[in-house]
Design a protein around this nucleic acid. Structure first.
Lengths: 194, 194
DNA sequence: CCTCCTCCATACGGAACCGTATGGAGAGAC
DNA sequence: GTCTCTCCATACGGTTCCGTATGGAGGAGG
């Protein structure tokens, strides 16, 4: 049971920062508390990073990768557009991603966070819209519905994280999500008459 | 141009706090900065309030009144349920209420804020659901759609406040909101076949 | 005019962070 | 074994906020 004294790398700090965001939001990205949690001191931190903002940038970049790139890659392996949207929908509503997303949105007054959010919205809605056009929606309607779906997603995770009592559980949740998915896809998954 | 020295009351502080929430979020509810802005000092504040939390409670209570009670009263004057929902939808999407709502949601880790949010969600979704049942939806479906509508609202104002570039402007916004309203109401404003 | 009673100013002390300065401790190069 | 380079610990000083203590200013009542 010797106390290991593993030297920390930049990545350990970044990972800890992202975890802290999920738990406490941007305020959790604080040098001294993080150091305490990692069992080290500020001396380590300021060796690897110039300042707090540099850590935040690194954490956001890591967030881009795991919370957008990765999931879109995974979902894109599905065979057809409808299945991709469905898989995406399930993946993002039924996981522990929500707290990080919600806390980041809440911290968008910080410029670095704001630009990360912009990147995310752009990439995600573009992907959704591309699937919708593949389903037969024209470009404008696809963009509208993509944004609509994204807004609904944001609102949903917001409620799940902030006011979980407001969101149904179990089968009721299934029914709810069914209602939502149907509404977003045009009540029957096919383009409605324009 | 004599510099008036109006004595401040409890209400001046609560109003300033609510304004600050709209501009800077919960962090804006800070005694010393608020005092500076009101042209006074902490001495005044701690005369009227026990501490920062007391001010926050007062601000939240005021928020209840103007951001939920009042608007529901206004909207409820419309002649029929569909008109009420439409009026509600327009009122909440097209105003300056958004920043306060968004910032409060972002601060729901604070217990007092969390309970205010719970109150708001409960009252608002209940109202929407009651209008939907009046339109012919059965209770369960009305509740689902009410929550759906509320989630969409939350997500929408979140985007408007945090990433305004993502939200269309002018006529495109009209079209977008049309798509959304139609989807929430069942593609045609009447209950879909179950 | 004097006295309270209400309201506010000033001055502290303390907590939680950020960022800097500086002195090591440990491991590989030789 | 010594040197050096990487990494970390400790100690400061500075900022921003909370909350308390205490001493007035200024008007309402007598």
């Amino acid at each position: 049971m010797a106390v290991r004294k593993p030297r920390l790398g930049r990545d350990d700090w970044t990972a800890a920062a992202l975890t802290a965001i999920g738990e406490q939001g941007l305020a959790g990205v604080a040098v001294e508390p993080l150091a305490a949690r990692l069992g080290t001191t500020k001396g380590s931190f300021y060796w690897h990073f110039a300042n707090r903002d540099a850590l935040l940038e690194a954490a956001l970049s890591s967030w881009d990768e795991t919370y957008t790139d990765e999931i879109l890659r995974t979902v894109d392996a599905e065979p057809d557009p409808a299945a991709r949207l469905r898989a995406l929908f399930i993946a993002v509503t039924a996981s522990e991603r929500a707290p990080v997303e919600v806390h980041l949105h809440a911290a968008a007054d910080h410029p670095a966070v704001a630009s990360a959010m912009r990147r995310a919205v752009a990439r995600r809605t573009a992907y959704i819209a591309s699937q919708l056009t593949a389903l037969g929606f024209d470009q404008a309607e696809a963009e509208r519905r993509a944004l609509f779906a994204y807004a609904t997603y944001i609102g949903h995770i917001q409620l799940v994280v902030r006011i979980p009592e407001a969101v149904p559980q179990g089968p009721a949740l299934e029914a709810y999500l069914g209602t939502v998915l149907a509404a977003v896809l045009g009540e029957n998954g096919k383009p409605a008459a324009n």
